[in-house]
């Protein structure tokens, strides 16, 4: 099993690479996307504007690789760039793989939302083990207007904690920082993705 951790050029990609190795992946960190991987990961680092610049430059190859059925995992901002657009650092276009947009949490709560918070599941078989578990969040933006979700959290508002469409998965939480639960999630992904 070979995973690509996409290097946008900013932030900590060390943690997600270590976590993927722990669950059995051979990990390549690169900014060049190709179809010779079993999983491609958009790490949850940086800000939307800078990550969006990367996406804009690579949109064609990303869409092509996604089109041939290579599984993707987007974490936090890595999930947000799979939406249609986002408002972090001004209006930026995303890949549009999921319906919806990323915007600041619209509630009177401390931001960023940083720390361990519980997630809950609905209508899911693959991710039922996440129900009622604490996972780690560090974000101010969430996905709005999505087409439904199987895992969600509450922080002033209810928000999607996990989006899925075919073999594309996005998580608002950081599995690589969520201790045993996060490792279990990444490990479940390997069997679920059949890669």
């Amino acid at each position: 099993m070979k995973a690509l951790v996409v290097n946008y050029g900013v932030g900590n990609i060390f943690s997600i690479a270590s976590a993927l190795r722990k669950v059995g992946f051979e990990v390549v960190v690169d900014s060049r996307v190709g179809s010779n991987y079993d999983l491609i990961v958009f790490p949850g680092v940086g800000n939307f504007a800078s990550v969006s610049r990367f996406v804009k430059l690579n949109a064609d190859v990303l869409n092509d690789v996604m089109g041939v059925g290579i599984p993707f995992l987007g974490i936090c901002i890595g999930m947000h760039i799979m939406l249609e657009y986002g408002f972090e650092g001004g209006l930026n276009r995303g890949l549009g793989w999921f319906k919806g947009f990323a915007d600041k949490i619209r509630a009177d709560v401390k931001l960023p939302h940083i720390g361990w918070d519980k997630v809950y599941t609905k209508n899911t078989d693959d991710f039922e083990f996440l129900n009622g578990q604490y996972v780690y969040f560090m974000h101010s933006y969430i996905a709005y207007n999505t087409e439904g979700y199987e895992v969600f959290g509450y922080y002033g508002v209810e928000f999607p904690a996990l989006l899925r469409k075919g073999t594309i998965v996005g998580t608002q939480f950081h599995p690589e920082k969520s201790s045993k639960v996060g490792i279990k999630f990444l490990s479940s992904l390997t069997s679920w993705l059949r890669c």
């Binding site: 900013v10 932030g11 680092v45 940086g46 800000n47 901002i77 960023p112 940083i114 560090m138 101010s140």
Partner: peptide, 8 residues
């Protein structure tokens, strides 16, 4: 915070 996000 602009480059890496406030959360970091």
């Amino acid at each position: 915070s602009t480059e890496f996000g406030s959360q970091s």
